[in-house]
Design a protein around this nucleic acid. Structure first.
Lengths: 325, 325
DNA sequence: GTGAAAGCGCTAACAT
DNA sequence: ATGTTAGCGCTTTCAC
């Protein structure tokens, strides 16, 4: 392995000088600096981050905890974030909580051991507050993504509550009188402890519009189909559905095909997640601007006080699936 | 920060004993070990990986270089891999090359600096061999994913060449006589330097079946639509298309809608990437078993000699888009 | 402007 | 079975 000592020896200077030259810090004669740079090139030296970090005490690793493997949204955010952090000389350590609170704990331990300078995560429970505390107590910045569970910690979310409200109103305007909401059920967390909550917005719209026949179903994440949902769908026979994500929507579409129901004639559809195939199928969608989301997130990653809540507005994109018949 | 010295002091032992106790190494009295464990619990000690690594010289970070943000396939592989590596006490450092050879170089530097013990990457060029060499010379294991560019390095790929061949034959059996293949064009890499190459398999099928009217188009990745492709599609008027990935397929479907072409009546379709919405649209697809892929990858991550080439077979899933009219 | 030396937190010889 | 000590590669006073 090539160390800074090798570089120093090759350049005929001390390792202290080499270190200064490489980081443009302190006084180094331009000529000396050039010799060091030449040595680096000749030897192919790359500084050992672990050693740098150990000595300097500063880390440039940002930890991310992703709750769900397959979620398109998270994957995009992770990649956008990774690229932007790189331009600030930071690297990303990736972990998966898989919607499991025990795994989330392990993720925290892993990131802690790696001495990350910040953690960006989507909480899957409200029972890991001890670790959240410990993290901030150790000067590690922390931000919640997508769901706000801990109110004293930074959070960046989409305003899904409002989107569900707007979506429901749009359904009513399109003539629906038997709306169904497919919301989200968490494994380790009561929905009403999470902001935003799609169901809240939906119920508000229902009340304001004096809709008497309505249902909501809280669908677990990770599972691609749920018999209980099929049962409710058949029993209730909704004329309009707001689907909490694209996976739920696919399940809904399969059900409708199975029972010969057409969209928008029999059932109108509004779906969260305006991704490529959703738009191809001409489904009315709640478009969540990911770029704006990351833009809002980026500046607060390293600022904790006072805790910020960034709430990104989504946009309803009207397409055939909610048009009049 | 809580260090091992704090733990040692709390437990009334030396830091060496504490270290041994924590790693179940060497001789430690059970009673002593328990005292150390209690101290860890009481103080909330988590070992500093950077320091461990610096001293022991062994790293447990695996680096991944992902070429494309949006690619569903990579995202799934990354997450499956991350989870399996965790069970072996390894963590994942994530970087993105974005199909750019200069960025790929930077990724290597980043992972090098982090002293990863292995690199798993999808090469975007054949011009970074110097870094590949340097990596292996430093005892860092390295494996290519999805594309084999360097023949002396481990690689795990799907047999896309054969899949394209089988797909083309299936099109001919369904009556197609004007097939079009949408293959992949790399930015920094000639397609014929990559194994597998979809075009090769396609051309073999064309030859064997004496098809005289055919075309292939090598579509760039990352871009969601290409005017040159639209032009070729209009000029040639294929009666069957094999699409190299789901993004290309969406572009194709949009074109067909724009020009009022129906599937399978006017154009039959076979697509790579058997993902959820592809199956919902009842498109015949080349199903790539990701689990088998990861299963093949996992055992060779840390074995380099001799270089292995794992070629995973895909399965053609027949659906309506290639049925007889 | 440059070098010598201490030390970050941890582990591995070696001593006891 | 446990403690002492050296040192991994780097940065950072502090001399010069």
């Amino acid at each position: 392995m090539v160390t800074i000592k090798d570089v120093a020896k090759y350049a005929g200077v001390s390792s202290a000088t080499a270190s200064r030259a490489l980081r443009d810090i302190g006084y180094v004669r331009p000529e000396t600096k050039q010799r060091v740079l030449d040595a680096v090139n000749a030897l192919g030296y790359i500084a050992d981050q672990a050693a740098q970090q150990l000595k300097s005490g500063v880390s440039n690793i940002v930890g991310i905890i992703v709750p769900d493997i397959k979620n398109y949204f998270y994957n995009i955010v992770v990649s956008l974030l990774t690229q932007r952090l790189k331009s600030d000389g930071k690297t990303v350590m990736l972990t998966y909580s898989n919607e499991n609170s025990e795994l989330e704990r392990e993720c925290f331990y892993t990131l802690f051991a790696a001495k990350v300078c910040a953690i960006i995560f989507t909480p899957v429970t409200d029972r890991n507050y001890d670790l959240v505390r410990k993290t901030t107590d150790n000067g590690i910045h922390i931000t919640q993504l997508y769901r706000r569970v801990y109110t004293d910690i930074n959070a960046v979310v989409f305003d899904d509550e409002d989107s569900a409200y707007i979506g429901a109103k749009h359904l009513f305007e399109a003539g629906c009188r038997r709306p169904l909401l497919i919301g989200v059920s968490y494994y380790n967390l009561r929905s009403d402890r999470v902001f935003p909550n799609r169901t809240t917005g939906f119920l508000r719209a229902v009340r304001e519009n004096q809709i008497t026949e309505y249902r909501y179903f809280e669908h677990t994440l990770l599972e691609t189909s749920d018999p209980a949902f099929e049962q409710l769908f058949l029993d209730f026979q909704p004329d309009g559905v707001i689907s909490g994500n694209n996976t739920f929507t696919l399940e809904l579409l399969e059900l409708m095909r199975k029972y010969g129901l057409r969209c928008p004639e029999d059932v109108k559809i509004i779906t969260f997640d305006d991704i490529d195939w959703i738009s191809h199928l001409q489904l009315t969608a709640i478009h969540q601007p990911i770029d704006a989301f990351v833009d809002a997130l980026y500046p607060i990653i390293f600022y904790q006080e006072p805790p910020r809540l960034e709430c990104i507005k989504s946009v309803l994109v009207r397409r055939k699936s909610t048009s009049a018949v």
